[in-house]
Design a protein around this nucleic acid. Structure first.
Lengths: 209, 209
DNA sequence: CCTACCGATCGGTAGG
DNA sequence: CCTACCGATCGGTAGG
């Protein structure tokens, strides 16, 4: 991500900002594999070759480090999944585009531990704490977006209007999540292929009659 | 689980055995909610009102505590899901039985943090360590069992023989896992209902022609 | 960004 | 099952 810099740049990014970015990239990598709970300040500092308190100074609390890590991961997700997926024709095109963008994001190993938010989903399932609430809201938002796209596709005659949008959103979401978990666990790309086939099967079943 | 004891029993369970069982029950509860990583010996001891080293003496290492906790959870899963699910007619009956038994196990909150093994799946996705290997073998075993039931149902004419068994196993597994995660995250039983409907939709689609 | 430190907790041990 | 302890690491602070 931008290793090249123009040396004569008049207002180039400060060293502090670069360090901050480097910290968050390492933090996302660790958290996607082992969870936010395994993201300790001492370990992060050692991996980056700086002192613990030097790193701490960037965030002032562990919760803020966790929050900023989630925010950075959200930006990656938007760039790698939502943007390419939504860049298709409104309705069915965007539905297919988002499913494929998600599976591609998993397959390419954008995060080495699989989908960052799928991992967080399991880690923060207990209904306690501000991070749980934030992740739950993200989750609701993504499902809600999918529901809206389904309703648009129904209005456009691309999906059977008798289909219940929330049910279909669930049935599309399910193979995406399972493809992520099984691909990450077994390191076997056939699970991503199973996910593609499942999405195609489900969309074929709800085609207008 | 057996609070009543016959006081005159000649070979009644020793106190040590009872304590051991109590430790594992608390350990399963904590691990299902927060993961095996949050299962510290000190915390477990405090929650049970015994000393840290007294608890430690039961297991001799943290890894053995983790292993025994997983073994205990496996026994619960077999009793609550596999046994009732397999108690149906071989083939399609057992497939439907297992899916319903799993969804019921989630809905009844057998583990307060949702399906124990779904949580472990996300926590030990990194391909390192003996616990990862053990959980991956469990996972393979369950999917393999489902594949065999599908092949049996195909031989019995209950499922279209043109269907690829591994693909169908994936498509049945996916809504079960998602129902578990979303029910646990949002505490909303409609996600379990979405899971039931998804299983029914998928089985209807692969009915013999 | 650093050194130097704090109290708390970690897994584990000695010895009973 | 206990008390008493070990070295390591935790999140965080003081002061620069």
């Amino acid at each position: 991500m931008g290793e090249l810099e123009s040396p004569a740049s008049p207002r180039r990014r400060s060293d502090g900002e670069q360090t901050h970015t480097a910290i968050l990239e390492t933090a996302m990598r660790i958290a996607s594999i082992e969870g936010l709970g395994s993201l300790t300040i001492g370990r992060l500092a050692k991996e980056l070759g700086i002192s613990k308190s030097g790193l701490f100074a960037h965030f002032k609390s562990k919760e803020r480090l966790q929050r900023e890590t989630i925010d950075a991961a959200r930006a990656v997700f938007e760039h790698e999944v939502l943007r390419p997926g939504m860049g298709h024709e409104p309705g069915l095109g965007q539905i297919e585009g988002l499913c494929e963008a998600y599976l591609s994001y998993v397959e390419r190993g954008v995060f080495p531990g699989g989908c960052f938010f799928a991992h967080m989903l399991a880690e923060f399932d207990a209904p306690e704490g501000p991070i749980h609430d934030e992740l739950e809201a993200d989750q609701r938002g993504w499902v809600g977006m999918l529901v809206q796209l389904i309703e648009t596709a129904q209005k456009q005659g691309e999906i059977d209007p008798a289909v219940e949008p929330r049910q279909l959103a669930f049935e599309l979401f399910a193979p995406l999540e399972l493809a992520n978990y099984l691909f990450t666990l077994h390191r076997d790309p056939s699970f991503v292929e199973h996910g593609r086939q499942a999405v195609a099967d489900t969309l074929a079943r709800v085609a207008p009659r």
